[in-house]
Design a protein around this nucleic acid. Structure first.
Length: 467
RNA sequence: GCCGCUGUAGCUCAGUUGGUCAGAGCACCCGGCUGUUAACCGGGCGGUCAUCGGUUCGAAUCCGAUCAGCGGCGCCA
């Protein structure tokens, strides 16, 4: 075996050093203008410099048209052999799409340019000549997924990811403003939180042989059991974390690794939590509408549909939903679970989110049976409109130790196998509620995405873990 | 787990009943063009037809298996 390559000590410790690094080919300077500022008319008529990548390139004899992009937009620059050095002009003709460039010039309004603005180049410098970019105008879903590491540069992906960022931030800000604390729970777990869901198994070298177990741990499907423990100290908590489901689901709404926003609060009833969720959805939508209009427009989203979402959201009991579905031609009886077909029928004609409450007991052992109607639960789902379906599942948790014991046995499980979770009901148990929100599904709805894969940088599905 | 579909050049695809079927456009390279809008004109490069096996005088084409991927259902967020 060849000797292991040694990493220079100074490299390892780079963050702690204050050595001034200089890159002669790339000036240490903030003296660059964003394309967004140019398009907003901030620097009309002045000579400025732009740094970015080549988005499109066309040339004719003595003239190159180089469309530049940065994270804020795109602008066409015109490189004329009359107004730049020979090396600049050659570079502009030679550089392929996605080459990184530094361009100096004067922005002017010009109707002939896409976007209405144009940069008259006085200097055109290529920092790195790109190889032939694998993504051209002929694109298939599969090719774009195989090249997702490069497709992330596309305006579609950038728009979705900007909106996604707003959504994540708005979620956090909303709960923090209500006095909730952000808490982290482990991704390695040994307790299933929800029966039925399939768990990923994680191995750990020879741990398995030594311990006699088949695996080291599962990957978490939800923080809920941990949240119920943490809640007793902090009372109001939330998290944003990945959850993992090994279901063999192949739909436009499923990922094996998805971003789960979850909330848990002591002294809180189901109906109170639903009100908070409504406020959360409205807050997130308002933030997106005030920060990401251009991204929504680029994606072709019907913005009026989002603007028209206002509370109070419609609330229906499960039994009434069954009646509505049967009036639409379904044949369901009380106790039947309904799937996406039913969700789609309910939500495709609606323009507002829809709460469904009082599901049958089978939905989850940890949800509290309704004292007035013990065969149903004090719980809720929230369905997004336009056919996007379920984005939230939540409810009031059982807080009485005896009731929890009974429910677990009813589900054919042994309370003892829940170990420390049963402990939580022994020491000052209190009423509490919580929910889980699929952030990718929420983003998918807000973006109007065709597929949930379109709104996460590196989607993980049952058949894809690359790139 | 179930149902359906796809695999031919770097990309998007055509290829009829098995017989000049190794093709086009784009990309890339060379040349031309001073207003292009993922331009245009001329030329060039480029494929073990997913893999393996079978049927046949002959297979990209028919059959089987395998691999990879896509869409949907059920389940869930």
């Amino acid at each position: 075996m060849p000797p292991k390559e040694r990493v220079p000590k100074s490299f390892c410790r780079a963050p702690f050093l204050t050595i001034q690094m200089t890159y002669p080919e790339f000036p240490d300077s903030d003296n660059f203008t964003t394309i967004g500022d140019i398009l907003n008319g901030v620097v009309d008529g002045k000579s400025i410099s732009v740094r970015g990548w080549i988005y499109r390139t066309r040339s004719s004899g003595k003239l190159s048209f180089i469309v530049l992009r940065d994270s804020t937009g795109i602008i066409q620059s015109v490189v004329s052999s009359d107004s730049v050095s020979e090396s600049s002009f050659t570079a502009s003709k030679k550089a392929l799409v996605e080459s990184s460039v530094l361009v100096t010039g004067t922005p002017i309004k010009d109707e002939r340019a896409p976007g209405g603005w144009e940069l008259k180049a006085s200097n055109f410098e290529v920092l790195h000549y790109a190889d032939t970019f694998p993504i051209t105008k002929d694109q298939s879903d599969e090719h774009l997924l195989n090249n997702r590491h490069l497709w992330l540069r596309s305006r579609d992906m950038v728009s979705c990811l900007k909106i996604r960022s707003t959504i994540f931030q708005a979620f956090r800000n909303y709960w923090i403003s209500l006095g909730y604390a952000e808490v982290q729970s482990p991704s390695f777990t040994t307790s299933a939180c929800e029966g039925g869901s399939t768990l990923f198994n994680v191995s750990y070298d020879d741990h398995n042989e030594k311990s006699g177990q088949k695996f080291y741990a599962h990957l978490s499907q939800s923080w809920q059991l941990y949240a119920e423990a943490t809640m007793f100290g902090l009372e109001k908590i939330f998290t944003v974390a990945p959850s993992f489901r090994a279901e063999k689901s192949r739909t436009r709404r499923h990922l094996t690794e998805f971003w789960h926003a979850e909330v848990e609060a002591a002294w809180t009833h189901n109906h109170q939590m639903m009100e908070l969720e409504e406020g959360m959805i409205n807050t997130i939508l308002n933030e997106v509408l005030s920060n990401n209009l251009s991204e929504l427009e680029h994606l072709g989203r019907d913005i009026s549909l989002l603007q028209n979402v206002k509370g109070p959201f419609e609330k229906m009991k499960y039994s009434d939903v069954i009646d509505e579905l049967n009036s639409l031609g379904f044949d369901l009886s009380w106790g039947d679970d309904f799937g996406y077909k039913e969700e789609k029928a309910l939500t495709s004609s609606r323009t507002q989110p829809l709460f469904i409450t009082h599901f049958p007991k089978e939905k989850g052992f940890y949800h509290r049976p309704d004292p007035e109607d013990p065969k149903s639960l004090v719980c809720h789902d929230l369905l997004a409109p336009e056919g996007y379906g379920e984005i939230i599942g939540g409810g009031e948790r059982i807080w009485s130790p005896d009731e929890l014991d009974t429910r677990i046995r009813e589900e054919g499980m042994e309370p003892a196998s829940y170990g420390w979770y049963m402990d939580l009901r022994k020491y000052g148990s209190v009423p509490h509620s919580g929910f889980g929100l699929g952030l990718d599904r929420l983003t998918s709805w807000i973006c109007g995405a065709e597929h949930i894969k379109n709104v996460i940088p590196f989607p993980r599905t049952m058949r894809r873990t690359n790139p």
